[in-house]
Design a protein around this nucleic acid. Structure first.
Lengths: 345, 345
DNA sequence: TACTTTATAGAAAACGTTTTCATTAAAATT
DNA sequence: AATTTTAATGAAAACGTTTTCTATAAAGTA
């Protein structure tokens, strides 16, 4: 423990001293505020900075400017295969433009969301991206969210039409999915819904109902089974279904997410029902596991990476005070794999 | 756009003025530095704080104290099902003790890692958790990492024995896995290795070799097939295997991660080889998809959440200047599902 | 030549805290 | 009653930047 050489972290002062200029000048070359500093001094200062490996203290900077180049990303549950892709999308664009992400994983707990918002406010994040209707609502009602007047973009459908958002059109997606099944000859199409608190779930269901109606097919109430977005929920749903396949059984199952779709696949295997020969199964989301299972799950592919990327792009434009359309829809497509086939009856 | 009432954000000054005390006093009640402030004033100030919904500016605080209550979490690829659980583990503990996470997703790019480290240094994170040997090495060699003298804990095996780390014992895990298969009567056990740059992969392989040796079984070179930790790699590996099942074919396949294990499952189905009747398949990691596939994949379960939690706990103790053992091993266990059975030949 | 402009630079205030030091009033001790 | 201790408070410096304002010297302009 020697005394003299305490390796203090190098500040702008050190650079100034070493370069024989004022800190003002250093600050100027640092910010490239070409505000009048001679090329010569500039180069010299730059060299000293390099020598000393000086990096400005972001706290000091932020304190003064109230800009932190940090954004908050609030999600429900990083463990859900749906989210990591979104996170990556956001992260990609964020890093690209010099923003850092504070990750807030609410674990579906509104209280945690509130805590995180308070922290985001304390840390003066420049903006916020939030994913999922629940979160969006939790945030919208929060005091500190309003206090901060944070620029925000939602991934998903906000109640408040004023909020900027990036979404997929769940109704249209449900409709298309259903039409796709009908185009293969299916008429007796069952649906495993999402949890009844989910807005997306409801819209997908409406899309399905609408498509059926348009095709003049009456929906047997038994064909719509409440699910909960879990693997087990998918299994239970299939167990509840009466007749599957055969002359007047269900010929196709449309699950509102892949987890349930995969659950359905497993339950069908257990009941000795072949997919897609006896019944087709269509999922939603296109998580990685969908391509791992056998038969590989056909699904409505949500562009999760693009959602993240677009959200970050939008946020950035908001932060730059540029105009952006309030709601942006991203297209889905149907990823055809092995679990959906033509109707055989 | 009225002029007078610009809703300025409320600072400690506002609280002080409103409460008719000095900012020193406010600061004192804020920090609960029970340094001499009368109960009465304290309550009064607290009330004003509540009224004004005042929250201290973390930047100003951090600037003064050089403590930001923020940690950096550097991972390779959030999209890989292995990581989200770790992230959640870290996040859980972090939030619990008032730390915020800056997420750095390096996307396997050393340059990005370097950029992130620079930012972490600029933002004065208190500590760092890094996951995976590559990352650990990239970080270890980085200038700003040393500059910052950041407290760090690695998840995985660091080259530098001085670094604190939380790990599983890959060699022992490989050994146990292999012994488990042998205990079911398997002798002709193939291994699909991980990428050859991975330290863990090498150790798991060594464990396997050691177990085989201990049992006096010679390893046919053909039985060890280079993989790359991907689903497709698992498929290709199985395609390369000559005899599987039957009198003197391979009776068990030990894949070094679940993705490859699942790939193997698919390839075997394609070749018309039954699992586990003809051949058993054992994976590694225990990702969610392992329980989704059929037959459900038996696997060496890595406690990913615990790794994250323990890492954060350790980091916290480091930050509190407490003593912590340098390396901590967490136990794995074998998750028995359907893809492994007794050897039938 | 005398005055204005312009390029370059620095001093000092500000950002919102925490902390050190000083001050006062009340209480305790002599 | 005079002194010391202690409880409660505030003023001001510090943290590391950016920015505004001021100052100088060189270069143009009249």
């Amino acid at each position: 423990m020697k005394k003299g050489q305490s390796s203090k972290t190098v500040t702008i002062k050190d650079v100034a001293r070493q370069a024989n200029v004022s800190i003002t000048t250093v600050s100027r070359v640092l910010n490239n505020n070409d505000y009048f500093v001679s090329e010569q001094t500039k180069q010299h200062v730059l060299q000293v900075i390099e020598e000393l490996k000086y990096r400005p203290n972001a706290l000091a900077r932020g304190l003064h400017s109230s800009k932190t180049r940090t954004i908050g990303l609030i999600i429900q549950d990083i463990t859900n295969p749906y989210y990591p892709k979104i996170v990556e999308g956001v992260e990609k664009r964020a890093q690209n433009s010099g923003y850092t992400i504070i990750l807030a994983n609410s674990r579906r707990n509104p209280e945690k969301t509130a805590q995180y918002l308070e922290i985001m406010w304390e840390k003066r994040v420049d903006g916020l991206i939030m994913v999922g209707s629940n979160i969006i609502e939790d945030v919208r009602k929060n005091h500190f969210f309003h206090e901060s007047e944070m620029k925000t973009v939602a991934i998903g459908k906000p109640q408040d039409a004023m909020l900027h958002s990036v979404q997929i059109d769940n109704l249209e997606a449900g409709r298309e999915a259903c039409r796709y099944l009908m185009s293969l000859g299916h008429r007796r199409i069952a649906m495993i819904t999402g949890s009844d608190t989910s807005v997306s779930a409801l819209e997908r269901e409406n899309g399905y109902r609408q498509a059926m109606k348009e095709a003049g097919i009456e929906i047997v109430p038994d064909y719509v089974i409440r699910g909960d977005f879990t693997f087990e929920g998918g299994i239970r749903a299939v167990e509840k279904m009466k007749r599957i396949g055969g002359k007047d059984g269900i010929t196709a199952i449309f699950a509102q997410n892949d987890q349930m779709g995969i659950g359905a696949l497993n339950a069908l295997k257990n009941r000795g029902i072949r997919v897609p020969e006896d019944v087709s199964v269509l999922g939603f989301d296109n998580i990685q596991a969908a391509s791992f299972v056998t038969p590989a799950l056909s699904t409505v592919a949500v562009p999760m990476d693009r959602l993240g990327e677009t959200a970050m792009d939008t946020l950035e434009r908001l932060l730059n005070e540029e105009e952006v359309e309030t709601v942006q829809y991203l297209p889905v497509h149907i990823e055809c794999r092995d679990s959906v086939g033509e109707c055989r009856v």
